[in-house]
Design a protein around this nucleic acid. Sequence first.
DNA 1: CATATTGACTTGAAATATGAAAGAGGTTGG
DNA 2: CCAACCTCTTTCATATTTCAAGTCAATATG
Lengths: 142, 142
Amino acid sequence: MLDHTDKEILKELLENSRISMKQLGEKVHLTGQAAANRVLKLEEEGVIENYTVTLNQAKIGYPVHTFINIYTKSTKHDPYLSFLDKHQAYVKNNYKISGDGCYLLECRFPDNSELDEFLTELNHYTNYKLSIVINKRNGLTT
Amino acid sequence: MLDHTDKEILKELLENSRISMKQLGEKVHLTGQAAANRVLKLEEEGVIENYTVTLNQAKIGYPVHTFINIYTKSTKHDPYLSFLDKHQAYVKNNYKISGDGCYLLECRFPDNSELDEFLTELNHYTNYKLSIVINKRNGLTT
DNA sequence: CATATTGACTTGAAATATGAAAGAGGTTGG
DNA sequence: CCAACCTCTTTCATATTTCAAGTCAATATG
């Protein structure tokens, strides 16, 4: 389904999605038009979901990065989920997981006091276990 | 530091980073050039870190999404970290966390058998607790 | 065997976007 | 008040994208 050139294209786009099709073509040994055609196909197939941007979260005012394990008290999850809806500004991801707990909630906060408020309110709906991200490293080299 | 227009720009870029500066300008009520100038400044300030693309992980052959809590046995983390280096294809993020455990490791696998292999090898370096992502939902609406 | 058919790429011309320079308008500080 | 400074706009040369043919190779069809 994906050949080697497609993978190269995806790799380049992961690193810089604003590259021109002409430049992208040069990198993967195609003309700009051929590259553009392949990219279009990848979009249509749903392989490429979205073009986006990674932001420095500290610089946009959300330095406190947390993962919160959620253990819902009741069998009904809707109160918890609508609580999340109310706090979309903080919520980055809410993963429904197997294993310990029901959800793994990834959130960002401007500071600890807002985190504290959030947790206090969260505790009306669920039990939780908090982990704060100290650092994000992908290996020895990074 | 960031005014309202900057935030609008970031919002648009999060949704579509391949938008032309001209179109972006229209969306935030500026000319293309003014928008481009602001974007350039956001890049220089480090607010914008990278332009990238979100891929359908299932369609590129990595459907099994996991979070693995890591509890290192020894005080030396380097063996674990170089183990991660060896398996970069699987590793999406390795967060150093406070709270329970030392790291929260986010990985993707093509199938359960590769996950199994990975865990077996991982167990030489650390104890772990596995969570498999069943679904990713950010609230009632999604 | 000759001939369609298909898919992926290339070419070239027109439409569109980008980037640099010059200018207009508003704000700040001496 | 005036000069300096920002930020935005306008203009125009340059670069990129898009669209319509056209080429080429591989595969299927009579």
